[in-house]
Amino acid sequence: MNLGCNNKLIKFFLTSLILFLLTGKSFSIEPNIFIQSTVNRASTALSESFTKEEKIRKLKNIAKETVDINGIGLYTIGKHRKKMTDKEKSEYLVLFEKYFLKTFSDRLSEYTNPKVSVNDSQKLNENYTIVSSVLVPTKERTEIKIDWRVYTKDPQNLLIRDLIIEGLSLARTQKEEFNSIIQTNNGEIDALFNSLRKFINN
């Protein structure tokens, strides 16, 4: 009797475990919850108790998990992508990731305990949802509207592709800056690579 009961228990646990493993990965998350959770993580990373170096390290880890760095890299290189060789693309994406993480963490590490309140979201299509939020005002600054372009193609792995601050897209600004560097150097993609290397090592 005991043996039969144990077998049933083992079967029950094994079945539960298999079901959990099978279904555990299929949980999808709503874009606004994803953004709120991400900003909460960033806010914790920016708390006063950490040094600037610790803040930067934590922010970089959060960005690697939640931002589609390669996607933004491909977007920001724009029309020049078409004339790049595969080797150049690979080199570019490596440089871009380093550049992105440096600017991202540098920009945010100056803040301490920022409070972001997520309001609503607007589904653009199957691939994109815009999540609206505000950076709560303090004595030093007024309220700032921040919209997040969330890439939703894989509902189990949502990724941020753009930040739109007061209607101004950071990805678009970056794209136009990269294009300007290439254009002012006679269309040479190497000029951008050199600028990226110089910036990263600075």
């Binding site: 101004l168 678009r172 600004t173 136009e176 800056e177 600028s195």
Partner: peptide, 27 residues
């Protein structure tokens, strides 16, 4: 955080004007 500050300012200015001219709140 800009490699070409002139280009960044230009981009932000033109985006801002585009938004203001359209009088649109659409993101």
């Amino acid at each position: 955080n800009s490699m070409d500050f002139y280009a960044s300012v230009k981009s932000l200015y033109l985006q801002d004007r585009q938004k203001k001219v359209s009088n649109s709140k659409k993101i």
